[in-house]
Design a protein around this nucleic acid. Sequence first.
DNA 1: AGGCAATGTTAAATAAGGTTAAACATAGTA
DNA 2: TACTATGTTTAACCTTATTTAACATTGCCT
Lengths: 243, 243
Amino acid sequence: MQKVAACSHLLFDQLKKILYIEDEPYLARIVKDTLELRGYEVLHKKDGTKIMEQVSNFAPDICLLDVMLPNIDGYALATHIRNMNPQLPIIFLTSKTQPNDIVKGFSSGGTDYLKKPFSMEELIVRIENQLKIMSRDTPALQSLPDEVRLKNYRFYPGKFELHTPSKVIRLSNRESQILAQLCAHTNNAVDRRALLQLVWGDDSFFNSRNLDVYIRKLRGYFEGAEGIEIITLKGKGYHFVVS
Amino acid sequence: MQKVAACSHLLFDQLKKILYIEDEPYLARIVKDTLELRGYEVLHKKDGTKIMEQVSNFAPDICLLDVMLPNIDGYALATHIRNMNPQLPIIFLTSKTQPNDIVKGFSSGGTDYLKKPFSMEELIVRIENQLKIMSRDTPALQSLPDEVRLKNYRFYPGKFELHTPSKVIRLSNRESQILAQLCAHTNNAVDRRALLQLVWGDDSFFNSRNLDVYIRKLRGYFEGAEGIEIITLKGKGYHFVVS
DNA sequence: AGGCAATGTTAAATAAGGTTAAACATAGTA
DNA sequence: TACTATGTTTAACCTTATTTAACATTGCCT
């Protein structure tokens, strides 16, 4: 049986980004760290001031909102966000558990509502669920250009082709996804967990040497390419050097 | 019917249909009556035998599944339903509240998970939320234009014709449906299961290589067409490249 | 320095899909 | 009624992407 990747049908998507509003620092810390470990990029804020700015600049894939916040409450935030973006998933995290609160949560634009205290497993699974639902029919979110120049190689993400000086290599889906990620972070670190999360969806998928196999293949393709190299950052990820 | 006007989900649509599997008769009674009062059509069953038949005959807009059921459990039911219909919302109703149960719920194809005991308000609001999310992205078959330009080919979905530079190919019904789907997602991934679901409905249609045969035919038609290609995304679907 | 976990390297196993051709179904028609 | 033509499904066999597994290597940490 094969695992269904959470978001892999969006071919070349970036790391998923989470905007997280929570005023309780201790809880916020735990949640943020855990999510980052799982390969998400998390922007945490203690309140909802400048939320619109953050939504448009940070461009999150999903928002987590506490309800009881200083100044503006979570419901009002959701309403604003929903006005600006009709698609963006919003999960409320709150200890307000009365039916009426929940109704308010959904009618203000929330797409899920999670009662405190919650387990991180449940939060993660609900985040992934929302992302899966939302990404089901998002058109052309390709974040890479049609052609990526890598020295005298050319990578065409949309066509699954890698052109070397001497030949054209047809890449498989996985190869292409991974290379796309590397390209998106050229001369920068790519987190290993994030890569796994992105390509395989990560559902309790820790022990496989699968990624290594694909890295090997890509390295094979770039063999003999002066100035192109995939460097291992042990315990961290990879560094795609193009110099 | 009485309070129909008050129910926002009834305004523009048919009665929404709910398939509800629950073996505890008292609870089932209350839930069914309340939902019907709210203007839903509810088909209640005490277990999951013949679930596939019910899904295809009753054609529910959403399923509510208890987890602990005689014979087949709710997770297994969800998996079956999900195989048959990749879109249909499934809400679990259960007293199993361990993180692991929840993970299982979502990974078996659930789209929401509600812990017992729950309030009817919460259930209803979650049902409406799922319906709202689902109605946002309906597959775009009918919205195709009369003429689709694919490089120097032309596809006329309404006329079942594919014009190549040299000749006119009359497409069959199936060929046309599949090509239309591909066109609707040009330069994007099309989910294999969604395609099967769309073209063949679903009826216990798991092992057939039928779609492949049609993909072959379409590939044949585009043979020699520079920049038009149907790429396989193994385990996922197809990617229609037009560049 | 040496133990250990993380990653590299291969090869084999598996599952997903490709390719044909023949069987089947159906509607039109001699 | 049988005959054709056409679209669709089934089936057998082939190819390849992806996963798994087994063993080798690297480099960090005490």
